[in-house]
Design a protein around this nucleic acid. Structure first.
Lengths: 236, 236
DNA sequence: CGCATGATTGAAGTACGTCAACTCTTGTGG
DNA sequence: CCACAAGAGTTGACGTACTTCAATCATGCG
């Protein structure tokens, strides 16, 4: 685990980082939030299920996955986290899942004690943290609908749309969807097997819903068909 | 929707309610948290997916379920909430699921603006709210493992154990598990059909894992076998 | 007491998983 | 630069675990 010192201002100035939000709170001791920058290689572990919670992680680049595993090795991927996403929570003795780098990644690590101090003295910052967990919770709700009630093709379609809705910075609503993770990872996220994921992607290709560029990127050809396939939740 | 006025002190004195936690924060304006008591009959709706968020709900008695529905009617139950549980979040324009009474229920309704005010002036209270969402998130993670990676019998076993871990007040680690919801509700929670849930419960009965008292209560005969069946998550 | 709703059990079909073969990448070292 | 190996992706054949459809049995409320 490489630990390079955080360069003051390099990321703190970036809109949206926890440190920048703390700054906006305009408190005398906002300087309390001093994250360090860590780089992880593909397959490196950030923390294990059950570990003592020490840091809040903010992803700068690359993709991180959080997972839970059964005693016989079956794995469920809880979430994928990309640039701007935050992993981990204060006020908990231990973490409830494992976090692993899907690609080479760079993250900011905020010592949890600092985050807790910041929350104690800034209501704005507390609100930010609450919104972060809540956003995550809402995402997991949709994920649960996929896992529990959608057919495999609907799950894959929903997944592609979810990946598309988080486009690379600067290219909103891009039709090119990046899939940095392996087919097995997609399967472990969707509660399927890699073979099923493969077959469904091939079927989407054959029926013209998507176009294959290479195995880690697809182009959406018919957004409306894909949305219909995804069986979006009904709102009363 | 019946709205009886909240009797000062009737629930605020109870350990663990949001109002009592606010009181413990010892702030001049804790009186800002004035919940009203509502009673819902079985099948009554507390709020719909997409509704404007107006209240935080704290369950006093009965059971509430939160659900998400697909356009063709398939339903996923996100969670069951009993006495002491809190539903809903501040700082969000709208709610992300539907809440419905599974049994006749009594809940305290805290106007969201009051909760937000309370958070703004009490770091302790903010911390409580954050912990509440985070606890919910962790529960959903386990739920996702069930939905995505467990076989039906393992899901039902996990569900029985989860229900047992929240025993009626005063009887900790009770072997009698209350199941206030219908078989269909259990199925919608576990991503199965009601028939499958039925068959598995019958099978558990035949193999002596549980004993049927009546359809809404079971007695756990072999806790260890049930735990083995549930395939508890592996912690590194 | 009777009807409506929920729970249970049975029979049959199929969608997805399992097993297996093969192909396409990617990266490393000669 | 090419050869090779190891891993990831793809496709096929087959079996089965769960769903679907259907009938019967309990339960509870008017």
């Amino acid at each position: 685990m490489t630990n390079t010192n955080f360069e003051q201002g390099k990321y703190q100035g970036q809109k949206g980082t926890l440190a920048s939000i703390a700054l906006e709170a305009n408190l005398p001791n906002t300087s309390v939030l001093k994250p360090s920058e860590h780089k992880y290689r593909k397959h490196n572990i950030l923390f294990h299920d059950g570990d003592e919670a020490k840091y809040i992680y903010e992803v700068i680049s690359g993709t991180i996955k959080t997972t839970k595993m059964l005693i016989d090795g079956r794995q469920q991927i809880i979430g994928f986290f990309g640039s701007g996403d935050v992993i981990g929570m204060p006020f908990n003795a231990s973490v409830a899942c494992t976090a692993e780098a899907v690609t080479d990644a760079c993250v900011l690590c905020y010592p949890i004690v600092q985050v807790e101090k910041q929350m104690a003295c800034s209501a704005t910052f507390s609100k930010t943290m609450l919104k972060l967990v809540h956003t995550e919770l809402i995402e997991r709700m949709d994920h649960m609908v996929s896992l529990g009630r959608k057919r495999p093709a609907e799950r894959v379609a929903s997944f592609l749309l979810k990946c598309q809705s988080k486009p690379p910075v600067g290219i909103p609503n891009n039709r090119y969807v990046e899939l940095p993770m392996s087919r097995t990872d997609i399967a472990d996220y969707l509660g399927l097997t890699q073979e099923t994921v493969c077959r469904i992607l091939s079927q989407f290709r054959r029926t013209g819903l998507i176009n294959a560029t290479h195995s880690h990127e697809v182009k959406i050809q018919s957004l409306s068909s894909l949305e219909a396939m995804a069986e979006i939740s009904a709102v009363h």
